[in-house]
């Protein structure tokens, strides 16, 4: 039913150690609210991304519990501290039990 889920991440090109950077993420997902009806008048079951997390080198940056009122293709922008070079891990949890993960390495100067 849904097209392939493909996370997109945007990080600044560079930062110095200890700096706070802006992280932008987007994942394509219908975020079916469970409140819509199909042409036959039947309720379309809810299927959303219900949780999103971002960690840097194993340290939690953001843990978000999401409800159906988050728009389709959920967008999250937030700030993360990068004390050293390392890896961001982004995780999206789908109502259907699937978990989507994206990783990005980041080098501090």
């Amino acid at each position: 039913m849904m097209t392939e889920v493909r996370p997109r991440i945007r990080l600044p090109r560079s930062a110095s150690a200890g700096e706070s950077i802006v992280v932008k993420t987007l994942i394509n997902h219908d975020m079916e609210s469970g409140q819509r009806r199909n042409s036959a008048g039947e309720t379309i079951p809810r299927q959303i991304i219900n949780r999103f997390t971002c960690e840097f080198n194993g340290v939690m940056v953001l843990d978000a519990a999401l409800e159906p009122a988050i728009s389709a293709n959920p967008y999250m922008e937030f700030e993360a501290v990068v004390p050293e070079s390392g890896e961001f891990v982004f995780t999206w949890y789908d109502d259907n039990g699937e978990v989507y993960t994206a990783t990005e390495t980041f080098e501090v100067s």
């Binding site: 940056v61 009122a69 988050i70 728009s71």
Partner: peptide, 28 residues
Amino acid sequence: ATGNPTPNVGKFTFGPGSGAPMIATRMR
């Protein structure tokens, strides 16, 4: 969202790696 059928939109918890208590998103 006080006027939505279900009011809760999201809960955003900032961890030790957070750079600032800030979140930008898009909602219905």
